[in-house]
Computed example of a mutant assay.
Amino acid sequence: MSTCTVCHRDLYADELGYQACRPCETRTDMNLRALGGEDGLYARLGSRLAPGSSSGGPSVSGSRTAPLPVRLEPLSLLARGGVVTILQTWLIDWFELLQFRHPRWQGDMQQQCDQVVKALRVNLRWAAEVHPAFAEFALEVGQLRRQCEAQVTGEKRARVIPVACPCGQTLRITLDTAGVRCPGCSEQYGHTEALSLPLAERRAAA
Rank of each mutant, 00 (worst) to 15 (best):
101 R>P: 12
74 P>K: 06
176 D>R: 06
48 R>C: 13
133 A>C: 12
79 A>W: 09
180 V>W: 01
23 P>R: 12
151 Q>M: 01
59 S>V: 14
98 L>Q: 15
151 Q>N: 05
118 K>F: 13
175 L>N: 14
62 G>Y: 12
42 Y>H: 04
96 E>Y: 13
127 A>F: 03
91 L>T: 06
180 V>L: 01
173 I>D: 00
70 V>W: 07
188 Q>T: 08
4 C>P: 03
73 E>D: 12
10 D>I: 14
101 R>D: 15
174 T>K: 07
93 D>M: 06
39 D>N: 12
54 S>H: 06
107 G>N: 14
69 P>Y: 06
92 I>H: 05
44 R>V: 10
128 A>S: 12
84 V>D: 01
115 Q>V: 09
203 R>E: 11
121 R>Q: 08
21 C>Q: 05
68 L>C: 09
73 E>A: 06
188 Q>L: 08
194 A>K: 06
165 C>T: 04
11 L>S: 03
170 T>C: 02
128 A>G: 12
204 A>D: 15
170 T>Y: 02
168 G>N: 10
52 G>C: 13
121 R>Y: 04
24 C>Y: 06
103 P>E: 05
181 R>T: 12
167 C>E: 12
202 R>I: 09
25 E>I: 05
2 S>R: 13
78 L>Y: 11
85 T>S: 03
172 R>I: 07
102 H>D: 13
96 E>F: 14
109 M>W: 14
132 P>F: 07
156 K>H: 08
46 G>R: 12
36 G>R: 02
44 R>D: 15
156 K>S: 13
1 M>N: 06
184 G>H: 08
181 R>E: 09
101 R>Y: 14
78 L>K: 09
41 L>G: 02
176 D>W: 03
170 T>R: 02
191 H>M: 11
191 H>F: 09
87 L>V: 05
66 A>I: 13
185 C>A: 04
52 G>H: 08
5 T>V: 00
132 P>C: 10
69 P>G: 05
50 A>G: 09
123 N>A: 15
4 C>F: 00
64 R>S: 14
72 L>D: 07
129 E>M: 11
109 M>K: 15
145 R>K: 03
188 Q>S: 08
146 R>G: 08
50 A>N: 09
125 R>P: 10
171 L>R: 01
49 L>E: 03
148 C>E: 01
182 C>S: 08
6 V>G: 00
137 F>E: 00
132 P>E: 11
107 G>W: 12
159 R>P: 04
113 C>P: 13
157 R>K: 09
183 P>K: 05
129 E>D: 15
155 E>P: 00
5 T>A: 04
91 L>M: 10
109 M>T: 15
5 T>G: 01
178 A>K: 02
5 T>W: 01
134 F>E: 02
158 A>W: 07
68 L>E: 14
139 L>C: 03
19 Q>S: 07
158 A>H: 11
81 G>E: 09
20 A>E: 02
41 L>M: 00
35 L>W: 03
